[in-house]
């Protein structure tokens, strides 16, 4: 029953979740440097509560930054499977969105959403740190709207 108690608890839980997004350090190529630079002093990701974690078991956000090749795609899938729900994926940069400028290459996966479901796409080559911070803010807005307790999980 969608009562007052359930919705308020859900809002409280969503506020908790959005204020401490721990992301997985997954820096594949050039976008990885902008990811590190975003965690640096000027555009600080830590003010959103986001700290980098080394293992997917402790992360709830995976920022796929950089080109994914066929050899790497299977590992990306394994990393995604290891994350615990609720989990989100941001695809950063045009190589992860759609293959980027390597369209005629024989070994580049044209878009990481062929192997994992993506929540947010950030265009750019590489995207500015402000764009990544904006993406985290949009993800936070998405998390606030989620009917977290009222969905039946598969």
């Amino acid at each position: 029953m969608d009562g007052f108690l359930l919705t308020t608890t859900e809002e409280f839980l969503n506020w908790n979740r959005k204020s401490s997004i721990w992301y997985l350090l997954f820096a594949s190529a050039c976008c990885g440097i902008e990811l590190m630079q975003t965690g640096g002093p000027r555009t600080d990701l830590d003010r959103f509560g986001a700290v980098p974690r080394a293992t997917p078991r402790q992360a709830d956000l995976m920022i796929v930054a950089g080109t994914i090749t066929y050899k790497m795609a299977e590992r990306v899938r394994l990393l995604y499977e290891q994350m615990a729900e609720p989990r989100y994926v941001i695809s950063m940069g045009s190589c992860a969105n759609c293959g980027g400028l390597f369209q005629s290459s024989y070994s580049v996966l044209k878009g990481v959403d062929k192997v994992i479901p993506v929540d947010l796409y950030i265009p750019g080559c590489p995207p500015r740190p402000e764009a990544l911070a904006d993406a985290v803010v949009k993800l936070q807005a998405k998390m606030m709207k989620e009917k977290y307790l009222r969905t039946v999980r598969a």
Partner: peptide
């Protein structure tokens, strides 16, 4: 004379 494959392990080559 190399032609890339149309898919690799279920992932298609073009978008």
């Amino acid at each position: 004379d190399y032609t890339p494959p149309t898919e690799y392990h279920g992932m298609s080559h073009t978008r």
